[in-house]
Nucleic acid binder design. Structure first.
Length: 210
DNA sequence: TATTCGATGTGCT
DNA sequence: GCACATCGAATAC
């Protein structure tokens, strides 16, 4: 049985690897957010990789700025950015210091404190829509600007733990959602048939990943 | 059910 | 000034 209170953060070595490997291995892991005196948690079911050196969709493509600087830190840091005037998106930095890579956490399946997540999200049609999108996930787990730069390898206000109950989920990959560049890369990964994954036409244009 | 469109504000050129 | 790793309501069919 999954025990959230005793769950240990994944170590630096997990994050300091190839971005695509980390991106798919994050599937099934548990995102934990300590906030409002509660332990919110959700199983990661959908991710996207963004790789600085060749990927025009990455915020770190050919540039180091005030916004993306944490992407150049070592793997295991949190990169949170504000988008479309309303929303936050949560990323995990991957690889070694100086590389500029990250994995966007696009969707997760609520595990604990689901009632709190419902309150944070406001009106939603079903439980499947609480966190099936990067900005929805941030709303449901109270992730915003002050999480920028947080160390996910420490048991702080946000971290990610392993999940013995879901060690080898069946994974599909597709193009990434919402881009105007880098559409050719199949850098989106998600758990097959999981109802908490974002609904999108790309779900039908997939490749089987191993 | 599928597609379009407006809200919103910040970072970057 | 403009683009933007989105969302959800409104519209079209």
């Amino acid at each position: 049985m999954l025990n959230i209170k005793s769950a240990k953060p994944l170590p630096v070595e997990f994050y300091e690897r190839d971005t695509l490997v980390v991106s798919r291995e994050l599937l099934g892991k548990i995102l934990i957010r300590i906030t409002m005196g509660r332990i919110l948690s959700a199983k990661i079911v959908e991710t996207e990789a963004y790789i600085g050196d060749h990927d025009p969709a990455s915020h770190s493509f050919n540039k180091y700025t005030e916004r993306n600087k944490v992407m150049y830190d070592r793997g295991g840091k949190a990169y949170v950015y504000f988008i479309y005037g309303n929303y936050y998106c949560f990323n995990v930095v991957t690889g070694k210091k100086g590389e500029g890579n990250a994995v966007l956490i696009r969707a997760a399946e609520p595990v604990t404190e689901i009632d709190i997540m419902k309150k944070l999200r406001g009106k939603t049609r079903s439980i499947y829509e609480l966190s099936n999108g990067p900005a929805k996930l941030c709303m449901a787990m109270n992730i915003e600007r002050k999480i920028y730069g947080a160390d996910l390898t420490k048991k702080g206000e946000v971290y990610i733990s392993g999940n013995e109950e879901d060690m080898n989920p069946e994974i599909l990959c597709s193009r990434r959602i919402g881009l105007s560049a880098g559409e050719e890369y199949f850098y989106r990964f998600f758990i097959k048939d999981n109802p908490y994954v974002t609904k999108h036409k790309f779900n039908k244009e997939v490749k089987i990943h191993k």
